[in-house]
Amino acid sequence: MTSPNNDKTLITFWGTRGSVSTPGRITEKYGGNTPCVTLCHQDTTVILDAGTGIRNLGIELVQGADTETHPLSLHLFLSHTHWDHIQGLPFFQPAYLENTHLTIYGSPKKERFLASVLKDQMDYEYFPVAMSSLTADIRIQEISEEVIQLGPIRIDWQEQVYHPGGSVRYRFHINGKRIVYATDIELDQLFCETDTSEKRESLCREYLGFIHNADLLIADGMYTEEEYPDKRGWGHSSIPILIHVASQAHVKQLAVFHHDPQHSDTFLDDLWVKNRLKYRSASHYMVVFWAREGLTLSI
């Protein structure tokens, strides 16, 4: 794993695919693993979601590292507990190391306890290893504070509606920079102007305020404009609305994330070629790119 040097914050994409993993030649460029992103600053490692991409992260963390003398201390923030965001956890090698400290954070507003949901995923009917067999020191925490401080990283968060069952977005403040992770939300519904209710407008303001001026926004952009009408109500955004909203909020860099399983590398490349001028013609200059597995950026 690329080690963070000096004051850089490194963001690595381990899984960028939405809904279900899609291995194969046609997805090798943008990746077939489901959501997992790391954010590393000095000695702090934050993991965003535990999709199948977390498996490769686990291998990288353990390989070549002396975990006996330098135990891993990791913080995993879950956007929600749909399969594609938790399914890699049973395959996360550091969770099987006794001296690993892993804290898992998630929404406090669910009907069931987060610990219970994660434990049930490893029920014997679904997986041969029980959660209790993970020998790491694992703490599962439903977030109670408005702000979490992890060393030099300050984290705030908001519940998201317009996704079945809801989800959580997170914002990381590091050395004056802001990185926002806001996946699994249907912005087309949130910013639907035909709904003039005060509640929706308030949610729009809340969203725009949260992502405002972000140095990097990692956000759900699952569908094309043409595909979206057939996917209305599924809880994911179309790419044009995401770009429009991010630009309006003066985001500096936008990683379009949670790719549709049907979108091959060629499809995404063609989509870029076809629309790149449109993506760049927004009033505010913003770097837009498709999130890609195996890519590390520094902020």
Binding site: T12, K29, D265, V287, F289, E293, L295, T296, L297
Partner: peptide, 9 residues
């Protein structure tokens, strides 16, 4: 895209 590290395709 300005990168720190990247797998090449």
């Amino acid at each position: 895209i300005k990168i720190e590290k990247c797998v090449l395709r």
